[in-house]
Simulated assay, not measured.
Amino acid sequence: MRNPLSRATVPLAATVLAAVAALPAAAATPLPVPEFRAAAPAAPAAPAADHPTYIVTVHPELDPGTVAEAYGITPIHVYRDALNGFAARLSPEQVEDLRATRSIVRSVEADGTASGSGIF
């Protein structure tokens, strides 16, 4: 059942609608979501081809490609299935910077050969 509008309600509703319509459009715009940025990395130095390759694992809620980009690193490969991370040639300074940000990076390990014992 609907309640009829009283004569006092109509002018009040018109005033409220006029006030809302007069608001600037920016007031209705949602706040921007802050972008992920690494904590003040050193100026990225292009790692030489002779720098060793590392496997960097980042926290599960972060995108590994975005983390690499934030540190100025060009990954050789980005992993999203078996682990959440990337492989890249890193300078010693980059390794230190990555290891110093435990809130972003879980581990930084030198890449190498793995083998199994063959016994199940």
Rank of each mutant, 00 (worst) to 15 (best):
A42N: 15
V105K: 06
L12S: 07
A21P: 04
D97W: 02
D63G: 02
F120L: 12
R89H: 08
M1D: 10
S115K: 10
A21C: 11
I76N: 10
A70W: 01
T53N: 06
E109L: 14
L31T: 02
V108E: 02
T53F: 04
A8K: 15
S117F: 05
T53K: 08
E109T: 14
L5Y: 10
L12F: 15
A26D: 11
P75K: 01
F36R: 04
P30N: 00
Y54P: 01
R7E: 15
I55E: 05
H77P: 00
V33F: 01
L23E: 09
A48S: 13
Y79Q: 04
H51I: 01
R106L: 08
T9C: 09
P4N: 11
P44Q: 04
T57D: 14
D63L: 07
A38D: 02
A100S: 14
G72M: 03
R99N: 06
Y71D: 00
V108R: 00
L83C: 09
S115A: 14
G85E: 03
P11I: 13
T15R: 10
N3L: 15
T57H: 08
P34W: 01
S107Q: 15
N84S: 07
P75G: 04
V67K: 09
A13H: 06
P32W: 00
A26P: 00
R102H: 12
H77L: 10
P47N: 03
V16W: 05
Y71N: 00
A87P: 03
P30S: 00
P60S: 14
G85Y: 03
E96R: 15
A46C: 11
R106Q: 14
L12R: 09
A87V: 05
A68H: 04
L31W: 02
T74C: 03
S103H: 13
P92E: 09
S6L: 11
R37S: 10
R89A: 05
A42S: 13
S117W: 05
P92K: 07
R37I: 03
E61F: 15
D97G: 03
S107K: 12
V95A: 01
